[in-house]
Simulated scan of single mutants.
Amino acid sequence: MMTRRHHHPSDSGPLKDRVVVVTGAARGLGEGLAHALARRGARLALLGLEEERLAVLAAALPGRSAHWTVDVTDADGLAAAAEAVRDTLGEPSVVVANAGVALGGPLLECEPAAWRRVVDVNLVGSALTVRAFLPGLLRTHGYYLQVASLAALAPSPLLTAYCASKSGVEAFAHAFRAEVAHQGVAVGIAYLSWADTDMIRAADETAVFRELRTHMPWPLSATHGTAPFVRAMVRGIERRSAHVYAPRWLRGANAARACLPSVITYRSRQVLAAHGDAPLPTTGLLGPGGSAAGSAGPDHPELRAEEEPRPAE
C-alpha cells in the first residue's frame, strides 16, 4: 500500500475530504468512479487484486488516495484493510461494493468451483466488504452503494451464477438498508446495464452468448460507454440515493420486472433451439477476482480481467 498526495484543485461539494472506499477499483467502472470521485475532493481507498494497476491509479488521482491488495472473500484481509484505511485516510463515509466476476455457459458445463466463486465474490464478498467497514460508516452516518445489475431484474440464460449473485446482492442491500436506517447509514443499489468494457467484449467472443445478448429486445441488447454509468453512480453517492439506474430506462425495467423473465425465455428459446444438441461453450471465469478460484473454462484458458460485468445484463 502507498499513499499519494497531489495538490490539484477539486470541487467543494458534499464529497470534499470524505473517505470513499471502492472495491474492484483497478479497472473499468471502478477506475472511472475513482477518478470522478477524486475530482470532487474525495479521499480514495482503492481495493482490488491487481496491485500494479491500483498503484498506477493512485498515483494518477488528484488529492489523497491509497490502495490495498485484498480479495473481497477474505474476511481477515478486509478487516485489516478497513483498519489500515482508517489509520491512513480516516473513517470511511462511503463504501462502494463494485468488485465482481462472471461465468458464462450452460449450468451442466460450468465447473462447480467456478460457479461458486462467482457467488462468493459477488454476493458473499459484498457482505464481507460492508461488514468490515460498517463500524466506520456507523460513526460517519455514511452511505453504502451496492453495485447490482440489470441481471437482477432480467435474468439471462447461460449466466446462472451471475444472475443469482446479482439478485442476491439486491435482496441483501434491501435487507441491510432496513437494518441500519435507524442508525443513520443510507444504502443504495446501482442497477447497471451493459457497459462497453473488456469484460463484455471477452464474453462476446463466445458466439452463443453474443447471439443471446443481441437478440434481446431493445434496449436490453444495447451497450453503452462507461461515462454515463460513472456519472449516475457519482450522482447517487452525492445524493445518498436508494436506487441508481443507468441508463435511466432501467427504472422502467424495474417497474416491468415481473414480465421480463417471460420475454427473455421466449427469445432465448428461439436462439438456443437453433443450436440443437450441439454443446454450448463456457467462457471461464471473467474478472481478476476469478483467478483465486484456480480454474477457467475450456474456451478461455486465460482469465479475462475486468472489474464488473454488465450483462442483461
Rank of each mutant, 00 (worst) to 15 (best):
T3N: 03
R5G: 08
R5W: 11
H7Y: 12
S10K: 09
P14T: 12
V20M: 10
A26E: 01
L29R: 00
L29Y: 01
G30V: 00
G32K: 04
L33G: 01
G41K: 07
R43T: 06
L46K: 14
L46M: 14
L54Y: 12
A55Q: 14
A55D: 14
A55W: 07
V56Y: 02
S65M: 09
A66E: 13
H67C: 14
H67V: 05
V72Y: 00
T73D: 04
A75F: 04
A79K: 13
A80P: 01
A82V: 07
E83I: 06
V85K: 13
D87E: 15
L89H: 12
L89W: 13
G90V: 04
G90L: 06
E91H: 10
E91G: 00
V96H: 03
A97N: 14
A97S: 15
A97P: 02
A97T: 15
V101T: 08
A102R: 00
A102C: 10
G104M: 06
V118K: 00
V121C: 00
V124W: 10
L128A: 05
V130W: 12
A132K: 11
T140H: 05
T140W: 12
Y143S: 06
Y144P: 00
Q146T: 09
V147Q: 06
L150W: 05
A152Q: 02
L153W: 02
A154L: 05
A154K: 04
L159P: 09
A161P: 12
C163D: 15
C163H: 04
S167Y: 08
G168W: 00
V169C: 05
E170V: 11
A171W: 08
A173E: 03
H174T: 06
H174Q: 11
H174R: 15
H174S: 07
F176E: 01
F176L: 06
E179A: 07
V180G: 03
Q183I: 01
V187I: 08
I189F: 09
A190D: 06
A190M: 04
S193N: 12
W194H: 13
M199L: 12
R201P: 03
R201W: 08
R201L: 05
A203P: 01
R213C: 11
R213N: 14
H215K: 11
P219V: 05
A222G: 05
T223W: 06
G225H: 11
A227E: 15
P228T: 02
V230G: 05
I237D: 04
E238M: 05
A242C: 08
H243Q: 14
H243V: 13
H243D: 15
V244Q: 02
L250N: 02
R251I: 09
C259Q: 14
C259H: 14
V263C: 06
R269T: 09
A273V: 01
A273F: 04
A273L: 04
H275E: 02
G276W: 03
D277I: 01
L285H: 02
L285D: 03
G287F: 00
A293K: 01
G294H: 04
P298I: 02
P301N: 07
E306M: 10
P309I: 09
A312Y: 11
A312V: 07
E313F: 05
E313R: 06
E313S: 09
